[in-house]
Every structure is written in C-alpha cells, then in structure tokens.
Computed example of a mutant assay.
Amino acid sequence: MRYGLSEMTDSTTSRGGKRERLVASAGELLHRQGVGATSLADIAHAADVPVGNVYYYFKTKDELVQAVIVAQVRQVEAMLTTLDALPRPAERLKALVQRWEEMSDIVARYGCPFGTLASELDRRDDGLDIEAAEPIRRILEWTEEQIRRLRRRGARELATILFAGVQGGALLANALRDPKVMSGQVRHLELWIDSLASKP
C-alpha cells in the first residue's frame, strides 16, 4: 500500500467509526479552509456525524485539531516506513519528494497540508504551534538519516535544504495556482538528489 499525500488528506480513507470520520474530515477541511474558517458543525456535516455527538469525542475544536496532528504524524510514519522498503537512500529521497508531485493539483489550490497547518498555528503559544510542526520534524529527521547514508557531511543542513525546496515549491505553486510549479521543483530536487548520490 502506498501512502502519498493524497491519502493523508482524503477523508474517504478513514470511513470507520465516528471518531475516525471526524478526524479524517477535520484533516481535509482544515487543509482546504483553514482552522479559523472551519467550525465543528462543518466537520460534523462532512463526517456524517450529528453535531451533538462531536462533543462525546472532542470537547473543543482544539482537541480535534490536536487529533488531526496526531493522525498526520501516524500517516507520515506509515509513509516513511513504505519508503524505507526502497533499496537505496537516493531512491527513497526521490520517492519522498514525488509525493508532493502526486498531489500537485491539491497543493496548488490549498498548499502543503503540513506546511499550511503549521503556518496557521504558528501564531499561537498554547502548544499546538509546536505540535503542528511534528510531521515536518519527522520528515526532516528521516531525510537527514537518508543523506547520512549517502555519506554526505552536513546531513542536517542538506535535509533542511531539500525540505525547504519542497515547501518553497508548494508555497509558490499555491500562490500562483499552478501545479506545474510543484512538478518542476520536484524535477529539480530529483536532479539535486542524484548529484548528492554521485559525488565522492
């Protein structure tokens, strides 16, 4: 099973119990509309759950946002586990950046699901701002490890450059509403990864 970014934001992948449907629908709506513009009633409607039942699972919208972040972390871990099955670090890194190309249309319309949520919550100081960065932190740590396996010095800095390239591509694609910007950036990053792998 592949875990692309589309699976991370598609509410149809978690149509199980009410709690799971609420978290999946919240993840999609928060990505498309933002935290401030999304109400618990919106989420309940999208999840096909009576509004009154939401409070059985989540006392506040913040609790539901936190559950979305936890779900994102789990989805990232599942994706990275899938990528670990590839034989070489450079292949794994290229497969990682290709996840954003697979979702270039959605990224061009709504931005990266991780970056947009982290950016929106960044102005808060209640802990959700730190938690929202966890999916990105996990990806960075994994990327650093892959670059280290390429025997490259400065693996942390190179991992940051790679993921900054992904996020920059997502930001520009979103600002310009042009999925080709994301695709072009992925091609550039793939060449850059090849250059890392080929240098002695």
Rank of each mutant, 00 (worst) to 15 (best):
A133D: 05
P179E: 01
E77H: 12
E120I: 08
L128Q: 13
R21L: 03
L191Y: 12
T82N: 05
Y3H: 09
Q75W: 08
G111F: 02
S11G: 06
D105Q: 07
S6A: 12
A67S: 14
F58G: 08
Q98K: 06
L30P: 01
I147M: 03
G52S: 11
R74L: 10
R19C: 05
I193K: 07
V65T: 11
L86N: 05
A44S: 13
A133W: 05
Q185V: 13
Y56S: 09
L128R: 14
A155S: 13
D105G: 06
R156H: 13
R177C: 02
F58N: 10
E144W: 00
E141C: 04
L162E: 03
E28F: 03
S25D: 06
V181K: 10
L5H: 09
I139A: 13
R19G: 09
G165Y: 04
G36K: 14
A26C: 04
P50C: 13
S25I: 02
E144F: 00
R99H: 05
H31C: 06
L196H: 05
G16A: 15
E77I: 01
D125W: 13
R152F: 02
G111D: 07
V76T: 14
M182P: 06
M79K: 07
L93Y: 05
G34Q: 03
K199C: 03
L22Q: 08
L162I: 00
V49C: 09
A26I: 03
A108C: 01
K18I: 04
S25Y: 10
D48R: 14
P135Y: 09
T116N: 13
D122M: 11
S195Y: 06
Q185W: 04
D178L: 10
A71H: 14
L196E: 08
A159I: 02
L40D: 06
R151H: 15
L172G: 01
P87I: 14
R109A: 15
I193Q: 03
I69P: 06
A85G: 06
A46M: 04
L80V: 07
E131K: 15
D84V: 00
V70A: 15
G16C: 07
E91M: 10
R153V: 01
P113G: 11
Q98L: 06
D84T: 09
V51M: 04
R156K: 15
K59I: 01
